[in-house]
Structures are given as C-alpha cells and as structure tokens.
Design a protein around this nucleic acid. Sequence first.
DNA 1: TTCGATTTGTTCGTATGTATT
DNA 2: TAATACATACGAACAAATCGA
Lengths: 251, 251
Amino acid sequence: MHDALSTGLPTTQPLYKEVKLRLTRGLVEGVWKSGEVIPSESRLATRFAVSIGTIRKAIDELVAEQILVRQQGRGTFVATHTEDRTAFYFFHIAGKHEPRELPAHELLAFRRAKADPEAERALGLERGARVCVMRNVLTLSGKPVVLDDITIPAERFPGLDEAALRGREGTIYGLYEARYRINVVRIAERLSAVPAEADVATILGVKARAPVLFIRRIAYTYHDAPVELRKSWVNTEAHEYVSDLWKGAPR
Amino acid sequence: MHDALSTGLPTTQPLYKEVKLRLTRGLVEGVWKSGEVIPSESRLATRFAVSIGTIRKAIDELVAEQILVRQQGRGTFVATHTEDRTAFYFFHIAGKHEPRELPAHELLAFRRAKADPEAERALGLERGARVCVMRNVLTLSGKPVVLDDITIPAERFPGLDEAALRGREGTIYGLYEARYRINVVRIAERLSAVPAEADVATILGVKARAPVLFIRRIAYTYHDAPVELRKSWVNTEAHEYVSDLWKGAPR
DNA sequence: TTCGATTTGTTCGTATGTATT
DNA sequence: TAATACATACGAACAAATCGA
C-alpha cells in the first residue's frame, strides 16, 4: 500500500495521479498563478515525499494538457493566455491563403441578465442565476470575420464592465486569467452551417441568409468546470476553421 | 556520446527518438501489421541494446499519437481501424441530440482519372499522376448526412475497384489498411460554410443553395506522408461537427 | 480452479547531459 | 564559473492484468 499522500480516497489510484491532483488543486487555489514557476521537481519530490520520477510523470500529463509548460534550465511554469502559443490553441480561424494571424477585438455590447435555460445547462448554473452577456466582433487584416456572443456566470466575474473589457490587452481568456484568476484550459466545440440572420449578416458583411459557420463552444477551467458559453458566427468566404487533429507528442 | 544504434545522422538526437524512428520504420515496412503485437518491451530493450525505460519512452509517444495501443498483461499492439475507438477518432459528425453513432456507407461513383492540380499539391504527386476518385454517401440512422468525394493516388492502391469498395466491412481506412497496408494515423481538416450545389443538395436532401458544412481533409500515414484528399459536405440540420479539443493525457 | 509465466504499469533510485541564470 | 533546473538514460523491484497449463 502506498499512501505517502493518501487522502482517504476509496480506490487507491497511482501515486502520480495523486500528485497530479495536488498540483491541480494548487493551481485552482492560486498557490501558483499564471505565468509563475512552480517549485522545482526535486523540491516537489521532497515536499510530497515521492521520487522525482513520480513528480515528472504527474507533470508530464499536465504539460500534455497544456496546463503547465516546461523550460529546460529555467523551470516549470503555469501556462498563460498572454502568449501567441496558447492563443492559437484556442483560436481556430485562419485565412485560406495568408499565414495565421491573431484577431483584433471590438466590443459591441455588454449587459447583465438572467441566464437562459441553455446557458444554465451549459454552465451548470442554478435556475435564475445571473450572467454577463457580451457581443464582440473579431477582425482579421481589418475585416470583420467572426461575431462572438459570450455568456459567463456573473458570480465568478464580479465588477466586470465595459471599461475593463475595452481596456484590456490580449485575449478575453487573458482577462479572465489576469483579473479573475480563472484559467481556461480546454474547450469543446460543435460546428454547423447556418444561414446568417439579419444582424449577423450586417456585422459580417455578407448577404442575409448567406451560409456562415456557426460554432457553439464551452470553455472549461481545471477539473472540467465550465466557465463560458460562446456562440460564434464566422464568415468563411476568405477564412476557415482549422482542425489539425493533434500531431501527438512533441516532435 | 550515446550511439548504441547510431545511424550516422548529423545531429545526435536522443536515444529514445532513434528507437521511435526504428519502430516507426518497422511499421512502415510491415514488420508488424495492424492489430498485431509488437515485441515486448524487454525484448525490444535487448534487441536495440538500450534500457527498458528508453523503450518505454519511445512507445509512450507512439501511444500518445494513437499509433500503438498498450494493454497491460497482453502486450503492445499496432492500432487498427477495425475498432470503434479509432473510428470516432476520425469521424467527427454526431447527432445534435442522439448519442454518437457510426455511419453506414454507400458508394455512388468510382473512377480513375488524372489528378487535378489541387490533388497534386495536396498529395505531393507528380504532374499528370493518376488517381482514384470516389463519391460516397454516409447515412446516420438511415438518413443521408455526409457526402464524401475522395481522391487517392492510384499508384498506391493497385487493383482497387467498385467491388472491393462495396464488399468491404468497416471504414474506408480499414480497407486501406487491410488491403494495402496503408495506415492512416493523422488527419488535418479545414472547415467552412457553403451553399449546397444542385447535386449536393439533391443527395443530402436539402434545398439548393442551403447552407452546408464543407470539410477539406488531408489524411496522413507514418512520417506525415499524405495519402488521401477528401472533400465532404455535411447537412447540419440535425447533426454537427465535433471538435473536442483533446482532453490531453489519459484520464 | 489454481498456479505460474509473461507483459505492461508504477515507483524508486542514481548518474550524466544540457540549458539558463 | 558555479549553481540550478529540466532532459535523458540506466537499472531494479514489485503490482496488476492476462493467458494458458
């Protein structure tokens, strides 16, 4: 029986899973914030009273999940949304011919409201919970390409307002992270083709009823907790959605 | 300097990368075929004259890339396309409400032709190379949902004909694998929304010019060699494209 | 059913290489 | 240059799953 850090769980899972869980817990609690280093492998090994190999295996998985980032000679860091690296991991629209590019944002609308049933389900909210709703246009090379309708639980984003959204630099997930210590680590998306409604068509500069790509995204933080529901409409005349089924291990 | 299995490469790469390369070479050459076991880790360790840990690290990456599959107590197997597991890895269409389901196939057309410029580029073919072109309808719960236009290099699929395509069981990639020992291990897709042309609309049972999802896929085998260009049109009235950005390490 | 051989999974430890500061 | 941190490689021991005798 290995119970160096037993937490009284019913089923004894591998030690490195325990370590992984404790590390994740540290991330949730903000012991180590985005962009910061976590303790060195040898330090963690002594602190958790396990071998350094066990630490490495736990960190391996968190690195594979893009939650941590290793840098030889420097240390292991909490992944942050203020790098192009992660930005492209969460932004999948690219020009059909041009090289990939990050979008510019413009806030069109912001309000607070009661969650509709769909948002309740997607975000796991109580009935009648309050949410923030915002609408953004994303432009690539100066042209509007994506329209985003974002819904987040108001409770987790206190004091969020138009000024904060406009004043930010970087992506919205960077704002979640910097201001609310909420780290988006995974997204799940469902795509379909729909005719553009009048308002969407106007904003994206396409004819009414023209085909646009519709994306329904749920963004998750640690422990698969949902934090954002996002609906997007994409003008795919000159751009497209990129789904490069993961090349697997580092090359 | 570690050169237990040095192959005279210019830059000395890690031993486990060498091992990985030699294993992949074995897969390419058909030393171990789909569904078969590869030698045990200890046997590989002695054969390659490296430690078992080095073998494990090489296999780890191939497992992460879904090229090999480990089974405790049994061995390590070459991944095959005759399992639901991998089928869903390469088929991304799901009902909006129903549980996920594998499609039934129907061959609409098959012919040989000269590759068009797009196929030449995508598949890295010589100018004027011959290709097989086929059109399939995929049905879910009896309803046509996806139309596939598939282009593959004729040279790599000798003797392929309608009978072989119709007579097969399982997916097309299963056929590539069983009959031609070509293993599709990765795909890259670009998605957009387009109006359905007349023929597409008829087959999918939607109005002409109605929005449909268009997918351009390139399928790769080992060493990132392209083997198939596929264009798909999807009726997304009751179905959608699933892009669950990889949960990362095994849970 | 039991047992033993085989194979992968987990954990430990150590030594050395390489990048960073 | 020295210290620190991750990366690679080796080896050993035991656990857990599988399979056939």
